[in-house]
């Protein structure tokens, strides 16, 4: 479903990610882990079209989308749950979802919104509240629900658990698991390595912008020294 071939990306003169390649399929969780500044977010932003790779290619279902911009990503089935949630604080919960479904028709918008409320009943209760007034966990749910509005096939999730209470983290991971069962590919960037490892089908460890280790979730879980060697925990 997704092929990343030798991408190099960064900002202006600074290269943050060197020569990264991987492949992932639907129904998988691909965990991208690494210390602060290892290049995880840069990678996600390149996949989301906010950064154009300097070299290499990103191929989704046979289409090379490397030079495409963020605006066109949903058309290729790619949706983003950004770092820090970044819900639209002065829009209501409902209108945040409306933005998420900007590219879909009126009917689909309505039914997708009802779906989202079914998955996240808490959002249904707060549908008229401003998103800025929600708790961190509720905002994360909204960010996920918003990304799901256009029925993507690939979900990019940057720092799912950062700053959330453990109970909320559990709920969010449960949703990730459900989406995976539904056949989505989830690219998950996490600093909280333990949680990411538990759900991951593939694990890639980034270190200073280089791919330091790449293997199945199974092997990462069974041989914890592999991962701790790179992350020091």
């Amino acid at each position: 479903m997704l092929q990343v071939k030798n991408i190099q990306c960064g900002y202006k003169d600074i290269v943050a990610v060197h020569d990264l390649s991987f492949e992932a399929a639907g129904g998988e969780v691909f965990a991208l882990i690494g210390a602060n500044g290892a290049g995880k977010t840069t990678t996600i932003m390149a996949l989301a079209g906010h950064i154009v790779p300097m070299r290499g290619s990103i191929i989704v279902e046979g289409h090379d989308i490397s030079s495409g911009r963020a605006q066109g990503r949903l058309a290729h089935g790619i949706a983003l749950v950004p770092e820090g949630r970044r819900v639209f604080p002065d829009l209501s919960v409902e209108n945040n979802l409306t933005v998420g479904g900007h590219t879909v028709g009126r009917e689909a918008l309505r039914s997708n919104r009802e779906n989202a409320y079914q998955i996240f009943p808490r959002l249904a209760e707060r549908r008229t509240q401003l998103a800025g007034s929600l708790s961190g966990g509720e905002q994360q749910m909204l960010a996920i629900a918003r990304a799901m509005m256009a029925s993507p096939r690939i979900l990019l999730v940057d720092e799912l658990s950062l700053g959330l209470m453990p109970k909320m983290v559990d709920e969010c991971y449960q949703v990730v698991d459900t989406l995976k069962q539904q056949g989505l590919l989830i690219i998950l960037v996490e600093q909280s390595t333990q949680r990411a490892l538990e759900v991951a089908d593939q694990v890639a460890v980034l270190e200073s912008g280089y791919l330091a280790w790449h293997g199945s979730g199974e092997s990462a879980r069974s041989d914890s020294s592999v991962v701790s060697a790179y992350l020091g925990n």
Binding site: A48, R73, A79, L80, R86, P89, V99, G100, G101, T103
Partner: peptide
């Protein structure tokens, strides 16, 4: 409010 994220939604 957030042009970058808005563009992600098409």
């Amino acid at each position: 409010t957030d042009p970058q994220i808005a563009s992600s939604f098409g």
